[in-house]
Design a protein around this nucleic acid. Sequence first.
DNA 1: ACGCGTGCCTGTTGGC
DNA 2: TGCCAACAGGCACGCG
Length: 286
Amino acid sequence: MPELPEVETVVRTLRPHVAGKKILKLRTVGTPCLVPESRSLEEAEGRVVAEASRRGKFIVLRLTKDRESDLFLVIHLRMTGRLMAYDRPESAEENWTENLCGRHARVFGLLGVSCADCALVFSDARKFGRLFLGTEKERADWSSWARLGPEPLDMGEEAFAGAITGRRAVKSVLLDQTVLAGVGNIYADESLFAAHIRPDAEAGSLSKARLRRLYRELKRLLLLSIEQCGSSIRDYQDADGNVGAFQNTFAVYGRGGDMCRNCRGKLKRVVLGGRGTVFCPRCQKT
DNA sequence: ACGCGTGCCTGTTGGC
DNA sequence: TGCCAACAGGCACGCG
C-alpha cells in the first residue's frame, strides 16, 4: 500500500511526464471517486501543471491559468490506487480496456504542450482512492487536508517526541495522520522494530530519549525506502509502472511467524487497532 | 471529547 | 483440483 516513500516515488516519476504540460482533457470514468468538497474535473481542463508535489500520502498537482487563481488536484491512492503516465496516449487507451490496470480506471486525462503527448490514468481496483480539485482556500476547508499533521521528514526529533503522547498504543499514534502525515502500517511496524519498541506500548509512557530514537529510525527507513523506490507488496507501482525494492529488506512487516533476523526468535503477529501488526517479543521491550 | 470499532471494496490466498 | 471464507488496511464515521 502506498505510504510516504511510495507516494514520493510516484510524484518523482510522474513529474517529468506532466510538468509544464497543459491538461487537454480530464474526466472521471465509472464509479465516482471525487470527494464531496471537490469541483468537477472538467474545470482543470485548459490549465498547465506548474508543480507536482507530495503532502503526507497525498499527491498534489498545482494547476495554473492566466490571471486566475491556481487550482490544486489532490490524489490519495489509499490501498490499491495507481497513477500512471503514458507518453504515447494511444497505448493508454489500449491499456484502459485491455489490461488489469485499465480495467479499474477511474480517471482518464490527456496532457500536452501543443498536442496530446501524455495520458494520465488513475486506476484503483478497491475503489478506496479519492480525488479533490479546488482552490487553495477550498483545500484548506477540506477536513482531510486541513487536519494533516507535520511531515515526518521535516518535523525534527523534538517536535516528534512532543507529539507522540497520550494513552494510545504508540503504533496507533504513528498511524494517526493528524499527528504526523505519511506513515502507514509498513513503516510503523518497521520503525518500531528498529527502535526496539513494542507496538502496543503506551505512547505517553515512552521516554523522550526512546522517542528521539524512534524518530531517527523512522526517518532513516523512510529515506532508505525512497532511495529504493518504495515497497511493492502486491499492487503498488510508480507512474512508469515500475516496482520498488524496499519490501526485500522488511524486518517484520508481513513476516509473522518467521524468524527474527536479530535474535532468531519467532516474530509475533497480533491485531492492534484493527491492523495486522508484527513484532519481535524479545527485541522489542515495553 | 476522545478513542475504539465498523464499513467500505475486491483481488489474492489458504484451507478443506 | 476447485471453491469459498478470510484477509489485506487507510480513512470516515458512529457510538459509548
